[in-house]
Design a binder for these strands. Structure first.
Lengths: 232, 232, 232, 232
DNA sequence: CATGAATGAGACTTCATTCAT
DNA sequence: TATGAATGAAGTCTCATTCAT
């Protein structure tokens, strides 16, 4: 029986069940990945507590028993999902900031845009909802998520804002707070997409692109180093 | 689900049955309030699904049956909590906007400040977390919350921004998107306070007041009607 | 659960609370009767187990506590209802048989007709359904009902059939079995009126009058002393 | 409700789990049948509402959860019981009528006799009691039973009577009412067997065979096409 | 390795009965 | 006498987890 170290395989997702003869080995290799994908999907849909183990297994094309063969409990499965989906997402952003040469306003725009493409519009964007929802019932996870995701992301955006100040493009502002103001609407959009946005709820429709554009425009204007001349 | 739950201090529950004297009437009067307080507290701590009716009752100092005497189901209890803690507040905000006479920048500042005092810094600030977490599993509640809270709140902030445009104080901007940019950081702060913030999690501390001040300052500058004079 | 029941002539239930002034004494006198009427009505509608004490009280215009003041438990109330509604219903029939002078076929017709008027078309006709439904969970009641109702009713009809044989009107037949064949369809009609007949169920409509007429006609022909002359 | 319940012998429950050998498959095959038998038995004993799911399971030798593995709700279980025990029988009766070649009086006798063998003297005869007792509290079940059992059974007997009229064996009579007169005593016998008859009640004993014989004889005579010559 | 039948603790909700007022 | 707020045992149904095959 497996231990509670999730065997995070790097093999690419095997696609559909492919019951062919020699595919047995391939399937076995792909199992953990398929289970994690199914689990992420279902956890985002239902939340941790309401997601049924049996449905995770079914979506991965295996039986309930097999799921428990790979992850000895639902909590272990949850942790594996978070670990598997949140590593290396921030590092790329850090490289982007380091390599960028143009004006900081463009850098911030690029960061926002990139984040939306790589995270905001993928299933990974739902993880934040799960973590927020279950943090108090699952303190281990909250700590892990803080260390691995929240703090690095804050550093990433803060360093970009700081760059603008250092280069005289922005007036002096509290960088962490501004970073917060940039990230909050993005993540907030994701939270709503994965809750209200996935319900047949009338009203309250928002256009993510418009919100992000408006917010970025607003913040960039607010950051500008030169103050408008006050009219008499 | 609540397995390894962080032992967050449990409120002492209003006072035990106090069997003496003519307290029957007094208790009956106070019951709904006590039950709603206990329910809000537990829903925020555990989420809607994971909060057990019996514990709500126990925290209010009554038995399981008594809870159902006042609220015929868990969902009704939740709706009552929302109505009691949020719906009325939005109406007050509307009156505030209608009665306000000064510059719109001050009005927005007042709205943000008031919201923080009356909601953000109270237990009511946890309600949004609950709804985001459970919307997909309880579409009725999501619809209820959308109708009773989200749409009215959006109208409230949007109308204030529109006022600024109409009076020539703000340049023309998409009002709903700006309203979103104003509310998102506030609510986002609350989401984190009630998830990570309530866990014994190291790091990731933010100063709500600083965040709100910075965000408001940024947005107000971004809204200003007069563009900065470009330096030669 | 089962509210919208087809309105099968329900006894007028003593009258509403009538909060009038000097009626206090009168009300107090009438209480037991009103409670028994309400209880009969509800027991017939719902059965013993599913009838809620609180609703019995409400239909009688008193509080739950008051009901328990008069009948110390639901079982006691049930017994009182049965006793109150089933005494002296058979005795009248016995007198009728003793006093009748005409042909026995007319006597049987009169018995059937009278029973239908006095029992079949009143709320009392529902008691048999209750007893059948709960007899095995309530052996006391089954014994009581057998002694006080079933055996006397059997004697009543059997004696009428025997009279027809004695007078040469009927051929010799097993009297108890014939009595059974006469009563069964009547009571059966009542059972169905108080179960399917009170549901919004499509189909299965029967015309009680037609059934009774047909059955009586059939049985009387079958009882006739003279055999039909066989055609050559 | 079940307080003072007569200690009616409880069936020994099919056989205990027998953990040995390759019995898993064998048990799985037999489960539905065992569960339906246990359910029928308990429903007849206690009624639908008072029968507890857990006891059905225990009598079938399985746990509560296993019952719900096979039948997703108590109502579904009940419907399955009805289908398994009654619906198929009626179809057989229809074939019998269609295939029969002799005189209709014999056909009716055969129908009654067959019904008594296949239903009246088996546990299935208790189903009607359950439905009568609970119809008003479970309109769905009443509708189901009406559609699947009552109407088809009425059609079955009515068509046999109509056959007698068409062939000139019977005088013209209202067929549905006559069918009612044939079925009512049979079902009535069953109702009593499963209520009073299952209690330790003194008196009120009837001989089912004698009742049925007498009733059939009476009705057949009453149906005869040739009228007796009226005596002057 | 894989399966899926089986388990049983635990959740929401109901309602007969009690008792302070 | 009358009230109705309060209780808590009991019922249906769910689902994480186990284990024989």
């Amino acid at each position: 029986m497996p231990q509670n170290v999730a065997p995070i395989a790097v093999a690419p997702a095997a696609g559909l069940p492919a019951p062919g003869a020699a595919s047995r080995q391939r399937r076995k290799q792909a199992r953990p990945q398929e289970l994690l994908d199914a689990a992420l999907e279902l956890f985002v849909e239902r939340g941790f507590a309401a997601a049924r183990s049996e449905e995770v297994a079914r979506r991965a094309g295996v039986s309930k028993g097999t799921l428990y063969l790979y992850y000895p409990s639902k909590q272990d499965l949850f942790k594996a999902v978070v670990r598997h989906n949140l590593v290396n997402l921030i590092a790329e952003g850090r490289e982007l900031v380091a390599a960028f040469a143009g004006p900081t306003s463009e850098l911030l725009g690029l960061l926002v845009q990139t984040w939306w493409q790589r995270v905001g519009s993928t299933a990974a964007s739902g993880i934040h909802k799960i973590v927020i929802a279950e943090a108090r019932n699952f303190p281990d996870l909250a700590q892990f998520y803080t260390d691995e995701v929240i703090l690095p992301a804050d550093q990433l955006f803060s360093s970009a804002v700081q760059r603008g100040i250092d280069r005289g493009e922005f007036r002096p502002v509290p960088v962490h707070e501004v970073a917060y103001g940039l990230m909050a609407p993005m993540i907030f959009l994701c939270l709503h997409r994965h809750s209200f946005g996935a319900c047949p709820v009338r009203g309250a429709d928002v256009d993510p692109a418009a919100v992000l554009r408006t917010q970025l425009d607003l913040v960039l204007r607010g950051l500008e180093a030169r103050r408008p001349v006050e009219a008499p």
